[in-house]
Design a protein around this nucleic acid. Structure first.
Lengths: 170, 170
DNA sequence: ACACGTTGTTTTAAGCATATAATATCTGAG
DNA sequence: CTCAGATATTATATGCTTAAAACAACGTGT
């Protein structure tokens, strides 16, 4: 394994740090571009929002993993949003009949959230188009580039998690 | 150059589409992780928010490019947020004395936004720490991995922009 | 039994974001 | 000159997001 010269001195070069920052800014720009587009299309085509879509998609994904039951906290962890955020979001979905919420008999604090048949149908109508949108946005990347990007983002995620764990453990 | 079998039939394989989707979800997860962390630190260390920081950083970047003057619309384009959003954001920064806004003499519709000396000092206090945060989050990526990620994200951005241009041009 | 810390959820207050409509100003064709 | 667009910004309504506090239910050690 090769050791970069700068590690002798115990700090990274200024260039490395600038590359990190530039990469982060570009990551953010890409995410915003895609997210804005997906938001707009969900709105135009299905009159819904990205957070609502995400809730339905996560509930469906959980069901496929045979974790038929998700609590509010499970859902907020999966969606990476705060618990309080989810309350009003699920509230609206319940009002629209896409989701149902029921108190768990064995622990009356916890709320179980489930897709209704209507919610499932609604999601199934959106999913194929959503996938096509994403695919067309990625169209100029070759399969191997996509795979490489996927891998590098995996490394980045691990790096971020490690960094947070170190920081949090102090 | 090898040609995938599916290109004979004129459409991509299902696998390619799934890779796009998986890559997109991972991109979003990474962005959310980093963004949440940066938000939290800006809040804890400097009692400010990411959008506010972004406004200051863009104003400073523009000044360095000797584009000393940015209008509200310039700024909203650079930040990739809507014009209406910026109004209240800049409003708050003006109230805090970090930014000043003045009407352009030659066109009384347009507002020029500028960093105040206080705003510049405030930004300069935050910038080095911000760069260190980002760099530590990227710590596990080698320089060449960072560079490769940067390049691939550049390709992705181009791909997204091409896709939007085609769609918009119809 | 019961006080106390923990866990799951909701509420609240503030800020961010968008789309749409309104307002103000400019510009150019006639 | 004047008025019909075009452009720059702000206002409004709605929804998302977070942090922090409040609330409710659980479970354990005494």
């Amino acid at each position: 394994m090769t050791v970069p010269a700068s590690s002798v001195t115990g700090h990274k070069s200024r260039d490395d740090a600038r590359t990190s920052l530039r990469t982060w800014l570009r990551l953010l720009a890409c995410t915003n571009l895609v997210e804005r587009e997906v938001r707009g299309r969900l709105r135009d085509r299905f009159d819904t929002t990205l957070p609502r879509f995400d809730v339905l998609a996560q509930l469906d994904a959980a069901a496929r993993e045979s974790k038929a039951e998700l609590t509010m906290s499970d859902l907020s962890r999966r969606l990476m949003v705060t618990n309080g955020n989810l309350t009003s979001l699920v509230e609206r979905l319940v009002r629209e009949g896409l989701v149902k919420r029921e108190t768990l008999a064995t622990d009356r604090r916890t709320q179980i959230v489930r897709l209704t048949p209507l919610g499932k149908r609604s999601l199934d109508a959106m999913t194929p188009e959503h996938q096509r949108w994403i695919d067309s946005l990625f169209a100029d990347l070759t399969p191997s580039e996509r795979t490489r990007l996927y891998e590098l983002l995996g490394k980045l995620r691990t790096s971020v998690q490690n960094s947070l764990a170190e920081e949090g453990g102090k």
